[in-house]
Design a protein around this nucleic acid. Structure first.
Lengths: 152, 152
DNA sequence: CTGCCTGCAAAACTTTTGCAGATTA
DNA sequence: TAATCTGCAAAAGTTTTGCAGGCAG
């Protein structure tokens, strides 16, 4: 559960010149091609969630194929750099995540995303383990709302 | 945030003879056909999450079309009787929800689901409102693990 | 009865795959 | 250089739609 004394939520600003991607790929011996960089740069240029089509449309002028976008999104998901979000209409969106434990606050209208790091579900998880016998592997917490711009 | 004194989680047992569906459809003046009943009965017979294909395969002997399953799942989702879950592989699953505020505890292996009702994110939500200016509309909290049967 | 529902089959949309040539480390 | 990647186009998989006939209320 959340700490009752929490008074400040840490928000992550996406760094458009994020260097972690180079080392992340290097560590795993995965080639970092210009296409993969372009796709990652697109995701980190704004704090928004996008569909695969959004990404493809935005970068296809550079002759990057749709299959490459799918393949790259898949790699970034597995590396934990991207998160999958399914909106209320069932549309699949992807958004960059900062490293560490974060949850998204998502605008229903424009898909603007703010990551926050406050979340302590350990007591709830212990309770569930005790009462159900399940082994807990993880959780997904997403908060939906409307951002200040879209309220106007 | 969760109440620190919470000592008991309320779990919902799905009631296979659930009558609420009749009144839920009647209230909205939506015809409750035999196909819709069959689909709902399938979801409430077990506490599992299923794909549309699972449902279709299970009941197609009764000459219920795939389109009907899609259309019915859509209605049940909108009525709040079903919830959509996307597993880690990106597969879309649906599961019955008890009325009221519940969250699912999902087995990664067999898709067995237990609903729990303990979740108080009001302090976190207030904090987010104060610090971001977002209007909060709702949240999704899902906990993933492995059920006792699958651990064996 | 009337209006909404249904199965079927086709259409639309989304995601994956195979391959010949290109690029990374 | 060797291994992996890429765009393209086709295949596979998923979801939606149109329509003629059927059923709930």
């Amino acid at each position: 559960m959340l700490d009752d004394n929490v008074s400040h939520v840490m928000f992550c600003k996406h760094n458009s010149e994020c260097k972690c991607i180079e080392s992340a790929f290097a560590e795993r011996r995965i080639p970092l091609t210009s296409q993969r960089k372009a796709i990652w740069r697109f995701f980190t240029a704004n704090t928004h969630a996008y569909t695969v089509q959004d990404v493809y449309e935005a970068i296809k002028s550079r002759r990057i194929g749709q299959a490459t976008v799918y393949r790259t999104v898949c790699i970034l998901l597995e590396m934990g750099l991207l998160r999958r979000i399914v909106d209320s209409a069932g549309i699949t969106l992807f958004a960059a995540v900062q490293p560490g434990h974060n949850h998204p606050l998502i605008c229903h209208k424009c898909h603007e995303i703010l990551d926050f790091d406050v979340c302590d579900l350990s007591v709830l998880e212990k309770l569930l383990v005790a009462q159900t016998g399940y082994t807990i592997q993880g959780h997904r917490l997403e908060i939906f709302g409307v951002c200040p711009k879209c309220q106007a």
